[in-house]
């Protein structure tokens, strides 16, 4: 009987595929190519990053609008002690940045050097990672241009 031991392969695997979906996927894929893609909301506003549903009416959104990688700071706060996993390892500003061509700002780091060098209304330009993979972190941070 001992010659007839039953056996079966045991494969440990993670059987789920996680997808960002068509809209966030389009936005993230754009970043890989240094392109920032917004989407037109139900009220006509261009929302960046592109989102699946209108934030007020919940309608499906589908009209993509490319925007520039330059824009203005709409509000900011100074981060004296950058923590592990944050965009920069030296003090920087968190900011909401409204890109040229967009009507809605989004969260990003601004490498301003000191809190005196940033203000609401400051013009900024994106600093891109050299090796981009289609992630929000392809956009390293923004730099103040004036």
């Amino acid at each position: 009987m001992t010659d007839d031991v039953l056996s079966a392969p045991h494969l440990v695997e993670y059987t789920y595929t996680r997808s960002t979906g068509p809209v966030i996927g389009t936005f993230l894929t754009g970043l890989r190519d240094k392109e920032i893609v917004g989407i037109r909301g139900a009220d006509g506003r261009v929302i960046v990053p592109a989102i699946d549903y209108d934030p007020v009416t919940s309608e499906d959104l589908s009209e993509y609008v490319p925007v520039a990688d330059t824009g203005v700071v709409t509000t900011w706060s100074w981060n004296d002690k950058p923590a592990k996993g944050q965009p920069l390892d030296k003090p920087f500003a968190w900011a909401l940045v409204k890109l040229d061509g967009a009507d809605v700002a989004f969260l990003a780091a601004v490498d301003a050097g000191s809190p005196d060098a940033i203000s609401t209304g400051a013009k900024v330009k994106a600093r891109w990672r050299d090796e981009r993979v289609g992630s929000i972190t392809d956009l390293v941070c923004f730099e103040v241009t004036q």
Binding site: T75, Q86, A95, L107
Partner: peptide
């Protein structure tokens, strides 16, 4: 501050690991 970042949008915000205090600062400045 770091734990609360896990509540944020997993694709466009959480990867930046924003501290809760920094986000509150955006509101105060606005």
């Amino acid at each position: 501050d770091r734990t609360l970042a896990l509540q944020l949008d997993p694709y466009t915000v959480a990867p930046l690991n924003p501290d809760a205090r920094g986000l509150a600062g955006l509101q105060a400045q606005a």
